[in-house]
């Protein structure tokens, strides 16, 4: 006898929903209808799905700002000298926004397109822009960290080894 699991905790996770849909023995089960009829009751306009998705998108867009503040504090704590701890933190400061920017599509994708059929897609351009800007600030902060740690080749001394030696036009012998 096969057992059926419905993972209710994963309702907000579209990935798991899909898995649930495809689960053995549930092929004919209309999950969305089930949700509509049983779980989610009719909401007011203020609680509409679009509104909630928008709100959620704004949360996502401004989320990095909170972590950025935290990272700044950690960076300040770790100091500007080149040590294993400060390098780790700087790496984190730099890599987190880069990763976030790379995954910008997948972060906002489930909010742009509703999982509930019939609900309209929404335009999250502003939120994405804000998300991008905040993460860019994160990258700039990361670069600033690198700069104050002296790890950016921005000064003459960093290129000194590539300077060509002089040739001499006269020879003095002794």
């Amino acid at each position: 006898m096969s057992k059926i699991y419905v993972d209710l905790s994963s309702l907000s996770n579209p990935k798991n929903n899909k898995a649930a849909e495809k689960a053995d023995g549930f092929l004919g089960f209309d999950y969305n209808a089930f949700l509509r009829n049983t779980v989610i009751e009719k909401k007011s306009d203020g609680d509409s799905d679009v509104f909630l998705r928008n709100k959620r998108a704004w949360d996502l867009a401004t989320g990095p700002a909170k972590t950025l503040a935290m990272q700044m504090f950690m960076s300040w704590m770790s100091g500007s000298s080149v040590q294993i701890f400060s390098i780790l933190i700087t790496g984190m400061v730099l890599m987190t926004p880069i990763k976030a920017i790379m995954s910008i599509g997948s972060v906002f994708e489930p909010l742009e397109h509703s999982r509930i059929s019939g609900e309209a897609d929404i335009n999250l351009f502003i939120q994405k822009l804000i998300f991008l800007m905040i993460n860019t600030v994160g990258i700039i902060f990361g670069l600033y960290r690198l700069a104050i740690m002296g790890l950016l080749p921005t000064t003459t001394s960093d290129w000194l080894n590539f300077a060509l030696p002089k040739t001499y036009s006269e020879y003095s012998l002794h």
Partner: peptide, 12 residues
């Protein structure tokens, strides 16, 4: 090894 002296402000 080097044609310059590096200063504390990383200038040469």
């Amino acid at each position: 090894a080097s044609i310059g002296r590096i200063l504390s402000d990383r200038n040469v």
